[in-house]
Design a protein around this nucleic acid. Structure first.
Length: 264
DNA sequence: ATGGTAGACCTTCTA
């Protein structure tokens, strides 16, 4: 089962590019972030034509997440628990049905810039809520994949020029510690497990020729429960998509699980 | 040291 994550930076502005990638990569499940539209404006029919079931948690102008799956999505949860006053659409979770079901979440973690403001406090609070929810999900002992745009540079080798990110919310000690705390719950970071090579970036800014100079960072991640990590076979960053016409500033990351390998 | 781009949408905000 191929499970993709991709921050598309507006699904409607990017639709042609996104559909082209879907036809090439044929993901079984795809988690999209920054769809930048309300549910009614999500181009569901275009994905349904490709054989996908659609679940959307949208928002006007900003944020918005979606999940697409070849098999029906069950037990859909919209919004991260823990703060009823949080109206950002940054989390959607569902069980991908089938003989070997997998619970999957599409995550758009707050950016948090600039540091020292309420935006950074919101980021850290959101990460604490994600930690609490992940704890609850891990107690289910299911195959679980928490994937998306984490807006976290975990380690210096995950940036082309770490010094340039020293004052950025994505690379603050508190941010990195909160990401490690998630992993300490018992989640496995897929990329580090099967590749882990420095320079595996997933984002290049639109500005200042970041792509041309390979000024990238690795901020799109997949965290796996033990039951899912046990089935992990590959992680592929679709780097070339950044060189396509009218690209997103993020590229897709695809995690493959071998669900038919034996008793689970 | 600064500014550079992209998207939604109404004018500036977010990233």
């Amino acid at each position: 089962m191929r499970i993709a994550t991709w921050n598309v930076n507006s699904v409607n502005a990017r639709l042609e590019t996104v559909l082209k990638w879907f036809e090439q990569a044929q993901p079984d499940v795809a988690c999209l972030q920054e769809i930048k539209c309300v549910d009614e404006k999500f181009p569901a029919e275009a994905f349904e034509r490709l054989g996908y079931n659609v679940a959307v948690h949208g928002q006007k102008t900003y944020n918005g997440v979606a999940m697409l799956s070849k098999t029906p999505l069950e037990d859909v949860r919209k919004g991260l628990p823990g703060d009823d006053g949080d109206d950002h659409a940054r989390y959607i979770e569902a069980v991908v049905s089938g003989p070997n079901p997998v619970r999957v979440a599409s995550i758009y973690l707050p950016n948090g810039n600039p540091i020292g403001t309420e935006k950074f406090a919101y980021k850290l609070a959101w990460m604490e809520r994600l930690n609490a929810h992940a704890r609850a999900l891990l107690a289910l002992e299911e195959r679980l994949v928490l994937t998306g745009d984490y807006n976290v540079i975990p380690e210096p080798q995950d940036a082309d020029n770490p010094a340039a990110w020293a004052g950025d919310a994505l690379f603050q000690p508190e941010t990195r510690a909160a990401f490690r705390a998630l992993k300490y719950l018992g989640l496995t970071e897929a990329y580090m497990e099967v590749d882990g090579a420095p320079g595996g970036y997933t984002f290049w800014d639109y500005q200042a020729g970041a792509w041309q100079r390979n000024h990238g960072i690795r901020i799109d991640h997949a965290l796996l429960s033990p039951q899912a990590a046990d089935r992990l076979s590959s992680v592929v960053i679709h780097r070339d998509v950044r060189s396509w016409e009218k690209p997103s500033d993020h590229v897709p990351v695809v995690v493959e699980l071998n669900l038919d390998a034996g008793p689970a």
